[in-house]
């Protein structure tokens, strides 16, 4: 199982390397939207910086994850399900997406900070929250992408299905990152992290319970 997962992650990585235009597209998306934000604001207040960062991150993430199930053709998926255990495929995609989303988060953070000045008071803490965000978004989006891929509507349906579900995670993250920005001084942010991890764990458990009913056609 572990061997399978490692091979599957390597496969995802190799596929990504073959489609460099997809990564380039995300990079372009981040830079151009940051530029629009810069052109509109010039001086971003911290409160808005926090909101804008998470909005950019949300849309960049959904575009990145949409590749994983939605834009694959069903023939190759069927082939893959016969080669490997379906749960291993799901785990591999989640781990790979978490890594990808973390990189996108760092990228958005770096680009936004370059344009608008470094607004974060505690960078280490902020990067930690980015990692938490990557894990949460990855679990939520990978599973909803698996659902959306079963219909023919594609990426549009993915946004409809995942945005309401991801809001609890996003709300906790916005509150946590307000801490890292120095907007609020909340010494008990540890409970927020625990809340977030609890939501993650619940979604992860459900994902594994429900995925066996999902992949078969």
């Amino acid at each position: 199982m572990v061997q399978e997962i490692i091979h599957l992650i390597a496969k995802e990585f190799r596929l990504e390397m073959r489609r460099k235009h997809a990564l380039g597209g995300i990079l372009l998306y981040v830079i151009s939207s940051v530029y629009i934000v810069y052109a509109g604001f010039f001086n971003i207040p911290k409160q808005s910086w926090n909101a804008i960062f998470w909005i950019l991150m949300l849309f960049a993430s959904i575009n990145a994850v949409a590749k994983s199930f939605v834009q694959e053709n069903s023939g190759s998926q069927l082939y893959l399900y016969q080669l490997a255990h379906p749960s291993a495929i799901l785990i591999a995609k989640m781990i790979y997406n978490a890594g990808l989303l973390f990189l996108i988060g760092i990228l958005t953070f770096v680009v936004l900070s370059t344009f608008t000045g470094d607004q974060v008071r505690d960078t280490g803490m902020f990067i930690g929250f980015l990692a938490l965000a990557a894990i949460g978004f990855s679990i939520c989006f990978t599973f909803t992408a698996a659902i959306a891929s079963k219909s023919n509507s594609g990426t549009g349906l993915l946004a409809i299905l995942s945005f309401p579900v991801v809001i609890p995670i996003l709300m906790s993250l916005v509150k946590l990152s307000a801490n890292a920005l120095g907007l609020i001084m909340d010494s008990s942010y540890f409970t927020d992290i625990l809340n977030l991890l609890a939501i993650d764990a619940m979604m992860l458990a459900l994902t594994f319970l429900l995925f066996p009913y999902l992949w078969r056609d």
Binding site: F143, P164, P168, S172, M203, L206, L214
Partner: peptide, 18 residues
């Protein structure tokens, strides 16, 4: 049905925890 179960579970953080 899969989404319904997922949605109901996400209702708990939405209405109770947050």
């Amino acid at each position: 049905a899969v989404y319904n179960i997922f949605a109901f579970a996400s209702l708990i953080p939405l209405l109770v925890i947050i």
